[in-house]
Design a protein around this nucleic acid. Structure first.
Lengths: 144, 144
DNA sequence: TATTGTTATACTCTATAACTATA
DNA sequence: TATAGTTATAGAGTATAACAATA
């Protein structure tokens, strides 16, 4: 018998599962933030991914959002109609349009960032030392 | 002056930010899993939230998904059309319909769980000891 | 020929409101 | 009256394919 382990369940996947629960439990908060800023979730994500001062081609945003270019057209249409971003022709390639976050967009984006940075209650139950330990571990995992 | 701190930026919110990056970076993987199982993201979420052997009222699923009851009707319609769940009248209240995961649904749900449990590469860069440390911290945060 | 962004199409998700059948 | 689930409606997100302009 090849005695397949019942489930590898490495510590890494266990940690991932716990983080997934944290996110699932925080989804309500995310929707509330979107509603407060009058953004749909995809619009909020797009605005968060666009960096003010860094013109970004539509196709690059599509890549970051893991969706088709044609979706970005509509999402950006609505952000542009609200004056949060604007389309600007790129100088080096006339097929490309750069997305630029407007001042109004940067304002909404910052509020979005502030609200979304609010950690779930679960994390606040950890002591300050434990929180720092968590930061150190996650920082190491994400280090390039 | 009430000297509002420029930004609390507790270690907790920094940890939360890092976890958010981990999730953002893993979205592509999630979409790939959905596509492989031929489930839309909401369908996948619904199937994951329904526990086989635990009949669940539609409205409870709506609550877990943070959406309106009327959305669940359509999502469940499609899951039911594929034979992954079924509706069953609840005995104690004839207004309520219980959702039951079928055997086929339990199978897909388990594959979904297995694929989604796959931790992102970043977590695998941590040593086994560090991974266990992470589990301990997250476990403490999520402890009831 | 290949790529960027748009348009057309069809389907899914979403919130709201109105409806039904229960309670 | 209130609640569970459905239906109707309208708007938004999604993938695919076809298209124009550009490379």
């Amino acid at each position: 018998m090849s005695a397949t382990a019942p489930a590898p369940t490495s510590a890494a996947s266990e940690a991932w599962l716990l983080m997934s629960r944290l996110f699932q439990g925080n989804r309500g908060q995310f929707f509330a933030v979107c509603q407060e800023l009058k953004l749909s979730p995809p619009q909020a994500m797009a605005l968060r991914l666009l960096e003010p001062g860094t013109p970004t081609p539509m196709s690059e945003l599509a890549g970051l959002m893991h969706c088709d270019n044609s979706n970005v057209t509509g999402i950006v249409d609505r952000l542009e109609a609200r004056g949060l971003v604007l389309r600007r022709p790129a100088s080096h390639d006339r097929r490309v349009k750069h997305l630029v976050v407007t001042d109004a967009g940067a304002d909404v984006r910052e509020r979005l960032g502030t609200l979304m940075a609010q950690p779930p209650a679960a994390l606040l139950r950890l002591s300050a030392a434990e929180q720092r330990q968590l930061v150190a571990l996650l920082g190491k995992a994400l280090a390039e």
